[in-house]
Every structure is written in C-alpha cells, then in structure tokens.
Amino acid sequence: MLSCRGLRKDYVTERGEVAAVAGIDLEIAAGRYAAIIGRSGSGKSSLMAMIGGLSRPSQGQVTVDGIDIWGLSENALAAFRNKRIGYVFQFASLLPTLRLVDNVALPAMLGGGARSSVTYARAATLLGQMGLGDHLDAYPSEVSAGEQRRAVIARALINEPALILADEPTSDLDEQTEIEIMDELMAVNRERGTTLILVTHNLALAEQAEQIVHIAHGTIVP
C-alpha cells in the first residue's frame, strides 16, 4: 500500500548540505500498524513528512495505493492529503479560534463536497466516540492536553482516511493520557482497518506495532 523508493531529503545549512534522510526503501502493507523509531535527529520525522506529502523529497518516490504522490500537482496533492491522510502532530495542532467541533469539521469543509450539516453531525459523532461529546462547543484552551489530542484524532478521521500518520503524538502527555491516546489510535487501526504509522522514540509504544522501522543517521537500521 505504501512504498518508498530511494527516498532522500537534504537540508542546506551554514555548514553545507546535510542528509536528514539518506536513501530509504520501505514498504508498509495496507491496514498495518507500523512504528518508525529512532533517536532525535535520526530523520524519522523528515521521513514521515515525505510519506505524508508534507515535505518534498530531494530524491526518490513515495507511492500510496499506486499513486506517486510527489508527481501530483499542487492542488491534487492538497486534495490527496485532505482525503487520504489523517495527521496527528506532536504539538497541539488545533486552531485556537475554532471550537472543537469546528476544528474536527475543518478538513471536510476545506475539501468541500459534503453538506455542512452532514459534516458537523459526523464531527459531533467522532468527538462523542473520543469521549468529548460534552465539549463540542469548547475552545481548545478550555480543554486538557489529552482532550485536545483526542480532538486531533477525531479531526484526522473526519474524511475517513486510508492512512494515519502520528508524529510523536504523546510526547508532551502524562503516562496515563499517553496510554489512553495510544489505545484510541490502535483502536482506529484495528476497528477501521486504517493504516497507522507512528513516529516515536518510545520503544515501549513501538513494541506493540506489527512492523518496526528503525532509523539512524537517515537510513534504516537492519
């Protein structure tokens, strides 16, 4: 389902060109839970950004369900991100001026197509499934960090994506909340068949994955 070929990402710094990802070949089957692990600066987030259509590779190809995503036009890639990928970032990624229900509905609204009432009903349902049914009208600043992260997972699911990319989604949460969030993500993978790729440096979280990709110095460690 997901295939990377010769993937490379170079950054130009004051000390010259640095390879964050130095030629990676990778296959992840549809519906699988995969964990990309590695130390800070190993290149795992850069890899995830290229897989998710967020950062253009210096070289190489990313294919999702047979589509070369970096061969798509700017607008087609935006539509691809919107419809096929759900993101859970390592920071609080809700828009502070929007209520939780607005934040969850936002990707569907940006994509267009669905009626607003249908989108909002689905957003409310998803928030309810994440235990936030009583907080639809709350603003991000009015709920806890864990609740914000649950809202982000609900947002990632609003367009029923085939792939969820979670980049250190629990790095700033306490242990109990981390367990709850990971339970939610794994439930999505298990119950909806959504491919889940988790980027983490937490080996305990990675151990539950069906596939572990260990990155060091921009390459996969065998």
Binding site: L54, N75, A78, N82, Y87, L95, L106, L110
Partner: peptide, 16 residues
C-alpha cells in the same frame, strides 16, 4: 506559519 502549515497539511489549497 505553524497554523498555515497545519491548514495546508489537512488539505487547504494554495488558493485557500
């Protein structure tokens, strides 16, 4: 820019 990046990540087109 963080928010703009987020909007692009969740599917906002350049025109939007």
């Amino acid at each position: 820019r963080g928010e703009l990046g987020l909007l692009k990540a969740i599917g906002a087109r350049r025109g939007q």
